[in-house]
Amino acid sequence: MLTKSAAKAFFLGGTVICAAAFVFLTVDTIAQFPDRSHEENMTPEVIHGFEIWTENNCMGCHTLMGEGAYYAPELTQVFRRRGEAWMTEFLKDPQAFYPNRRKMVQYDFYDAKKVGKEEAAKNIADTIAFFNWVGDIDLNGFTGDPNNGPEQDIEKAAAKAAAPTAAASASVDQLATLRSLNAVCAGCHTIGGGALVGPDLAGVANRFDAKYLTKWIQEPSTIKADTTMPNLGLGDAQVKELVDFLLTLK
Protein backbone atom coordinates (compact mmCIF):
# COMPACT_ATOMS: atom_id res chain seq x y z
CA MET A 1 0.00 0.00 0.00
CA LEU A 2 1.10 3.49 -0.83
CA THR A 3 2.82 5.29 2.03
CA LYS A 4 2.58 8.96 2.84
CA SER A 5 6.22 9.57 1.98
CA ALA A 6 5.75 7.89 -1.42
CA ALA A 7 2.76 10.14 -2.04
CA LYS A 8 4.86 13.15 -1.09
CA ALA A 9 7.63 12.05 -3.47
CA PHE A 10 5.06 11.68 -6.28
CA PHE A 11 3.84 15.23 -5.64
CA LEU A 12 7.28 16.79 -5.45
CA GLY A 13 8.74 14.81 -8.36
CA GLY A 14 5.82 15.45 -10.71
CA THR A 15 5.76 19.13 -9.86
CA VAL A 16 9.48 19.63 -10.41
CA ILE A 17 9.46 17.78 -13.77
CA CYS A 18 6.39 19.61 -15.09
CA ALA A 19 7.59 22.99 -13.88
CA ALA A 20 10.98 22.43 -15.54
CA ALA A 21 9.30 21.44 -18.83
CA PHE A 22 7.07 24.50 -18.60
CA VAL A 23 9.99 26.84 -18.05
CA PHE A 24 11.89 25.26 -20.97
CA LEU A 25 8.91 25.70 -23.32
CA THR A 26 8.42 29.26 -22.09
CA VAL A 27 12.00 30.15 -23.05
CA ASP A 28 11.47 28.70 -26.52
CA THR A 29 8.09 30.41 -26.93
CA ILE A 30 9.45 33.80 -25.94
CA ALA A 31 12.26 33.39 -28.44
CA GLN A 32 9.68 32.83 -31.20
CA PHE A 33 7.36 35.70 -30.24
CA PRO A 34 9.15 38.52 -32.10
CA ASP A 35 8.91 36.60 -35.39
CA ARG A 36 5.39 35.31 -34.90
CA SER A 37 4.04 38.73 -33.96
CA HIS A 38 6.08 40.62 -36.58
CA GLU A 39 7.70 42.86 -34.01
CA GLU A 40 9.50 44.66 -36.82
CA ASN A 41 6.14 46.25 -37.74
CA MET A 42 5.50 47.40 -34.20
CA THR A 43 5.76 51.14 -34.81
CA PRO A 44 5.29 53.74 -32.05
CA GLU A 45 1.77 54.20 -33.47
CA VAL A 46 1.00 50.51 -32.92
CA ILE A 47 2.34 50.64 -29.37
CA HIS A 48 0.27 53.75 -28.69
CA GLY A 49 -2.76 51.95 -30.09
CA PHE A 50 -2.15 49.08 -27.66
CA GLU A 51 -1.95 51.59 -24.80
CA ILE A 52 -5.33 52.99 -25.82
CA TRP A 53 -6.68 49.44 -25.95
CA THR A 54 -5.44 48.71 -22.44
CA GLU A 55 -6.14 52.03 -20.76
CA ASN A 56 -9.78 51.98 -21.80
CA ASN A 57 -10.35 48.32 -20.93
CA CYS A 58 -11.66 47.55 -24.42
CA MET A 59 -11.26 43.90 -23.41
CA GLY A 60 -14.05 44.46 -20.88
CA CYS A 61 -16.55 44.13 -23.77
CA HIS A 62 -14.68 43.02 -26.90
CA THR A 63 -12.46 40.03 -27.49
CA LEU A 64 -9.09 40.24 -29.24
CA MET A 65 -7.29 37.03 -30.18
CA GLY A 66 -10.37 35.48 -28.59
CA GLU A 67 -9.64 36.97 -25.16
CA GLY A 68 -11.84 39.38 -23.29
CA ALA A 69 -15.54 39.67 -22.49
CA TYR A 70 -18.20 38.47 -24.91
CA TYR A 71 -20.40 41.54 -25.16
CA ALA A 72 -18.97 43.22 -28.24
CA PRO A 73 -17.51 41.92 -31.52
CA GLU A 74 -14.28 39.95 -31.86
CA LEU A 75 -11.66 42.34 -33.26
CA THR A 76 -8.66 40.22 -34.30
CA GLN A 77 -9.44 40.56 -38.01
CA VAL A 78 -11.43 43.78 -37.82
CA PHE A 79 -8.97 45.60 -40.07
CA ARG A 80 -9.33 43.00 -42.85
CA ARG A 81 -13.08 42.86 -42.35
CA ARG A 82 -13.93 46.55 -42.27
CA GLY A 83 -10.94 48.40 -43.66
CA GLU A 84 -9.41 51.68 -42.60
CA ALA A 85 -12.10 53.97 -44.03
CA TRP A 86 -14.94 52.27 -42.21
CA MET A 87 -13.03 52.08 -38.94
CA THR A 88 -12.09 55.74 -39.08
CA GLU A 89 -15.69 56.76 -39.67
CA PHE A 90 -16.88 54.42 -36.95
CA LEU A 91 -14.46 55.60 -34.30
CA LYS A 92 -15.28 59.26 -34.86
CA ASP A 93 -18.66 58.58 -33.27
CA PRO A 94 -19.31 54.91 -32.48
CA GLN A 95 -22.71 55.53 -30.96
CA ALA A 96 -23.96 56.98 -34.27
CA PHE A 97 -23.36 53.59 -35.88
CA TYR A 98 -25.88 50.87 -35.19
CA PRO A 99 -28.39 53.23 -33.56
CA ASN A 100 -30.95 51.48 -31.35
CA ARG A 101 -28.59 48.59 -30.76
CA ARG A 102 -25.84 47.70 -28.28
CA LYS A 103 -23.78 50.83 -27.60
CA MET A 104 -20.03 51.31 -27.40
CA VAL A 105 -18.68 53.25 -24.42
CA GLN A 106 -18.38 57.01 -24.94
CA TYR A 107 -14.62 57.50 -24.53
CA ASP A 108 -12.57 60.66 -24.57
CA PHE A 109 -9.79 59.34 -26.79
CA TYR A 110 -11.74 59.57 -30.05
CA ASP A 111 -13.86 62.54 -29.06
CA ALA A 112 -12.69 65.65 -30.93
CA LYS A 113 -14.62 67.86 -28.49
CA LYS A 114 -12.77 66.43 -25.49
CA VAL A 115 -9.20 66.02 -26.69
CA GLY A 116 -9.12 68.25 -29.76
CA LYS A 117 -9.47 67.37 -33.40
CA GLU A 118 -5.82 66.50 -34.07
CA GLU A 119 -5.37 64.40 -30.96
CA ALA A 120 -8.59 62.51 -31.65
CA ALA A 121 -7.57 61.84 -35.25
CA LYS A 122 -4.16 60.58 -34.13
CA ASN A 123 -5.68 58.33 -31.47
CA ILE A 124 -8.09 56.88 -34.01
CA ALA A 125 -5.32 56.31 -36.55
CA ASP A 126 -3.06 54.66 -33.95
CA THR A 127 -5.87 52.39 -32.74
CA ILE A 128 -6.43 51.28 -36.32
CA ALA A 129 -2.67 50.76 -36.81
CA PHE A 130 -2.72 48.52 -33.74
CA PHE A 131 -5.58 46.41 -35.15
CA ASN A 132 -3.81 46.18 -38.50
CA TRP A 133 -0.72 44.83 -36.71
CA VAL A 134 -2.70 42.39 -34.54
CA GLY A 135 -4.34 40.95 -37.66
CA ASP A 136 -0.95 39.75 -38.88
CA ILE A 137 0.06 37.84 -35.73
CA ASP A 138 0.39 34.10 -36.36
CA LEU A 139 -2.49 32.67 -34.31
CA ASN A 140 -2.26 29.07 -35.53
CA GLY A 141 -5.18 29.63 -37.87
CA PHE A 142 -7.61 31.34 -35.50
CA THR A 143 -9.47 34.32 -36.94
CA GLY A 144 -12.53 34.48 -34.69
CA ASP A 145 -14.16 35.93 -37.74
CA PRO A 146 -17.81 35.74 -38.54
CA ASN A 147 -18.12 35.29 -42.25
CA ASN A 148 -19.09 38.80 -43.11
CA GLY A 149 -20.61 38.14 -46.54
CA PRO A 150 -18.86 37.71 -49.87
CA GLU A 151 -16.20 40.23 -50.79
CA GLN A 152 -17.42 42.91 -53.12
CA ASP A 153 -15.80 44.45 -56.11
CA ILE A 154 -17.34 47.88 -56.57
CA GLU A 155 -16.00 48.25 -60.10
CA LYS A 156 -17.49 44.94 -61.23
CA ALA A 157 -20.81 45.77 -59.63
CA ALA A 158 -20.89 49.18 -61.28
CA ALA A 159 -19.87 47.76 -64.63
CA LYS A 160 -22.48 45.03 -64.42
CA ALA A 161 -25.23 47.39 -63.40
CA ALA A 162 -24.22 49.94 -66.02
CA ALA A 163 -23.85 47.50 -68.87
CA PRO A 164 -27.39 47.76 -70.28
CA THR A 165 -27.49 51.54 -69.97
CA ALA A 166 -24.14 52.82 -71.18
CA ALA A 167 -25.09 56.41 -70.37
CA ALA A 168 -25.22 55.72 -66.66
CA SER A 169 -21.78 54.15 -66.48
CA ALA A 170 -19.79 55.58 -63.59
CA SER A 171 -17.01 58.05 -64.33
CA VAL A 172 -13.46 57.65 -63.03
CA ASP A 173 -13.99 60.43 -60.46
CA GLN A 174 -17.13 58.82 -59.17
CA LEU A 175 -15.35 55.55 -58.72
CA ALA A 176 -12.81 57.21 -56.41
CA THR A 177 -15.56 58.44 -54.09
CA LEU A 178 -17.45 55.20 -54.34
CA ARG A 179 -14.38 53.17 -53.56
CA SER A 180 -13.78 55.11 -50.35
CA LEU A 181 -17.43 54.80 -49.40
CA ASN A 182 -17.59 51.16 -50.38
CA ALA A 183 -15.54 50.19 -47.38
CA VAL A 184 -18.03 51.99 -45.15
CA CYS A 185 -21.28 50.80 -46.73
CA ALA A 186 -20.08 47.23 -47.25
CA GLY A 187 -19.89 46.86 -43.49
CA CYS A 188 -23.65 46.37 -43.56
CA HIS A 189 -24.81 46.08 -47.19
CA THR A 190 -24.00 43.86 -50.15
CA ILE A 191 -24.84 44.18 -53.81
CA GLY A 192 -26.31 40.83 -54.71
CA GLY A 193 -24.73 39.03 -51.77
CA GLY A 194 -27.83 38.81 -49.57
CA ALA A 195 -28.88 40.82 -46.53
CA LEU A 196 -26.36 41.45 -43.75
CA VAL A 197 -27.15 44.13 -41.18
CA GLY A 198 -28.83 46.23 -43.87
CA PRO A 199 -30.71 45.04 -46.97
CA ASP A 200 -29.12 43.77 -50.18
CA LEU A 201 -28.85 46.77 -52.54
CA ALA A 202 -29.09 44.84 -55.82
CA GLY A 203 -31.96 46.30 -57.79
CA VAL A 204 -32.44 49.14 -55.33
CA ALA A 205 -33.02 51.51 -58.26
CA ASN A 206 -36.16 49.56 -59.18
CA ARG A 207 -37.61 50.08 -55.74
CA PHE A 208 -36.79 53.68 -54.80
CA ASP A 209 -36.26 57.04 -56.46
CA ALA A 210 -33.48 59.61 -56.02
CA LYS A 211 -35.36 61.72 -53.49
CA TYR A 212 -36.13 58.84 -51.20
CA LEU A 213 -32.61 57.41 -51.36
CA THR A 214 -31.12 60.86 -50.64
CA LYS A 215 -33.29 61.18 -47.55
CA TRP A 216 -32.30 57.67 -46.39
CA ILE A 217 -28.63 58.60 -46.59
CA GLN A 218 -28.92 62.07 -45.09
CA GLU A 219 -31.41 61.47 -42.29
CA PRO A 220 -32.09 57.76 -41.84
CA SER A 221 -34.04 58.13 -38.62
CA THR A 222 -36.66 60.42 -40.16
CA ILE A 223 -37.71 57.55 -42.41
CA LYS A 224 -37.50 54.79 -39.84
CA ALA A 225 -37.12 55.83 -36.21
CA ASP A 226 -35.62 52.55 -34.98
CA THR A 227 -33.29 52.01 -37.92
CA THR A 228 -29.73 50.78 -37.46
CA MET A 229 -28.54 52.84 -40.43
CA PRO A 230 -26.15 55.57 -39.25
CA ASN A 231 -26.08 59.16 -40.42
CA LEU A 232 -22.59 59.39 -41.91
CA GLY A 233 -22.72 63.17 -42.29
CA LEU A 234 -21.72 63.11 -45.98
CA GLY A 235 -21.47 66.29 -48.05
CA ASP A 236 -24.14 67.04 -50.66
CA ALA A 237 -21.81 66.24 -53.56
CA GLN A 238 -20.90 62.85 -52.06
CA VAL A 239 -24.54 62.04 -51.41
CA LYS A 240 -25.39 62.87 -54.99
CA GLU A 241 -22.64 60.66 -56.36
CA LEU A 242 -23.70 57.85 -54.11
CA VAL A 243 -27.37 58.18 -55.11
CA ASP A 244 -26.40 58.31 -58.80
CA PHE A 245 -24.50 55.09 -58.31
CA LEU A 246 -27.36 53.42 -56.42
CA LEU A 247 -29.73 54.36 -59.25
CA THR A 248 -27.60 52.27 -61.60
CA LEU A 249 -28.28 49.14 -59.55
CA LYS A 250 -31.26 47.87 -61.53
Binding site: L2, K4, A7, K8, F10, F11, G14, T15, C18, A19, A21, F22, L25, T29, Q32, F33, R36, S37, M65, G66, E67, I137, D138, L139, N140, G141, F142, G144
Partner: peptide, 24 residues
Protein backbone atom coordinates in the same frame (compact mmCIF):
# COMPACT_ATOMS: atom_id res chain seq x y z
CA UNK B 1 -0.42 14.69 -1.71
CA UNK B 2 -1.71 12.42 -4.48
CA UNK B 3 -4.41 14.88 -5.50
CA UNK B 4 -2.24 17.99 -5.51
CA UNK B 5 0.35 15.88 -7.33
CA UNK B 6 -2.17 15.22 -10.12
CA UNK B 7 -3.18 18.88 -10.08
CA UNK B 8 0.34 20.04 -10.87
CA UNK B 9 1.05 17.17 -13.24
CA UNK B 10 -1.85 18.29 -15.43
CA UNK B 11 -2.29 21.94 -14.49
CA UNK B 12 1.18 23.37 -15.10
CA UNK B 13 1.53 22.24 -18.72
CA UNK B 14 -2.25 22.54 -19.07
CA UNK B 15 -1.60 26.31 -19.17
CA UNK B 16 -1.06 25.50 -22.85
CA UNK B 17 -4.82 25.59 -23.46
CA UNK B 18 -4.60 29.37 -23.18
CA UNK B 19 -1.77 29.47 -25.70
CA UNK B 20 -3.50 27.80 -28.67
CA UNK B 21 -4.60 30.93 -30.50
CA UNK B 22 -2.87 33.84 -28.84
CA UNK B 23 0.37 33.98 -30.77
CA UNK B 24 2.33 31.13 -29.18
Amino acid sequence: YIIVGFTFLSGILGTGHHYYYTGA
